[in-house]
């Protein structure tokens, strides 16, 4: 082959070390300028929430733009938020509802997913197709009939009514089934030969190995139900049963009017648990969202 000289354009030949440096630096500058501008937009409500929650009313209501409070009023605002409305009660309700939902979801979904992944039984295909179809149905669709049924049964305004539509997570079944399918059959066979019952195999062999999927699903489930407003708004009218979003809405509407100091204090208290958990378990959170992929 003819050995041609390398083709070099004029601009390539003239790159000096200094120009290369400047080129790199300007690039970095614009990248960070853009990202930081976005970060300010994202953080603005959080920062303002924290700052306002320690401001006295006269500063909140002054039309002047001031960042840091002249007078620390945090104790009063948080005190008011915790006493005037049962904010801690809201948080506790959130914990109860989220835990209840998650536990039942796991208890129901894991054996079902195992059966779908590893066992032969009549109706297996039908069940799986139903699961796939149900994946498309958001809670707002069956909400109406379920509400009517709960009303007939006199079960409105109970923890049970808040949790029951979510006891079955078709998404959990789907996720765990995918995970279990890659579990080696040989280990299950070995466990059967060792005399383990199918029940023990599910809970003592297969489930521990699915820990990443379970953690991801838990993150997904807790974030979804801690923050859910639609369903509690429908079935709960007793404020003592309200989970955080409903409680926040009630607090914003009724108690405080425009007492923004107390309002932001309440918002801080109700947002904090998930945000703090996120800061400590960032990897798990991000994995959870990535793995689950849908919201």
């Amino acid at each position: 082959m003819q050995a041609t000289l390398p083709t070099r354009t004029a601009s390539e030949g003239e790159v000096s070390p200094a120009a290369a440096m400047i080129r790199r630096m300007t690039g970095l500058f614009f990248v960070h300028a853009f990202l930081l501008a976005g970060a300010v937009f994202i953080l603005l409500p959080f920062v303002w929430m924290l700052v306002t929650s320690i401001k006295p009313p006269e500063e909140v209501f002054s039309a002047e733009l001031s960042f840091w409070p002249d007078r620390f009023y945090g104790l009063e605002n948080y005190g008011f938020a915790l006493t005037a409305a049962p904010v801690l009660r809201f948080a506790l309700n959130g914990v109860i509802v989220c835990t209840g939902i998650l536990v039942v979801q796991l208890l129901i979904a894991i054996p079902c997913a195992y059966a779908l992944a590893k066992l032969q039984f009549p109706g297996r295909h039908l069940l799986f197709i139903l699961v796939l179809l149900a994946l498309c149905i958001p809670i707002q669709v069956p909400a109406l009939p379920i509400y009517v049924a709960l009303a007939w049964l006199g079960l409105l305004n109970t923890y049970f009514s808040m949790m029951v539509p979510f006891f079955l997570s078709v998404f959990g079944i789907f996720l765990f089934r995918q995970f279990f399918r890659s579990f080696p059959d040989d280990i299950i066979h070995a466990a059967r030969l060792d005399g383990m019952s199918e029940f023990e195999i599910v809970w003592r062999i297969v489930t521990p190995s699915a820990w990443p999927a379970i953690a991801a699903f838990s993150v997904f489930s807790i974030v979804a139900h801690w923050n859910d407003l639609y369903w509690p708004l429908i079935v709960i009218s007793d404020i003592n049963l309200a989970p955080p979003p409903l409680g926040m809405m009630y607090f914003a509407d009724a108690e405080t009017g425009s007492n923004y100091g107390a309002l932001t204090a309440a918002a801080t208290v109700l947002t904090a648990p998930l945000v703090v958990t996120f800061l400590f378990a960032r990897r798990r959170f991000i994995e959870g969202i990535t793995m689950t992929g849908v919201k």
Partner: peptide, 10 residues
Amino acid sequence: IDHLRPHERR
């Protein structure tokens, strides 16, 4: 060629 980017190095 230390300051050159990969494609500028021939």
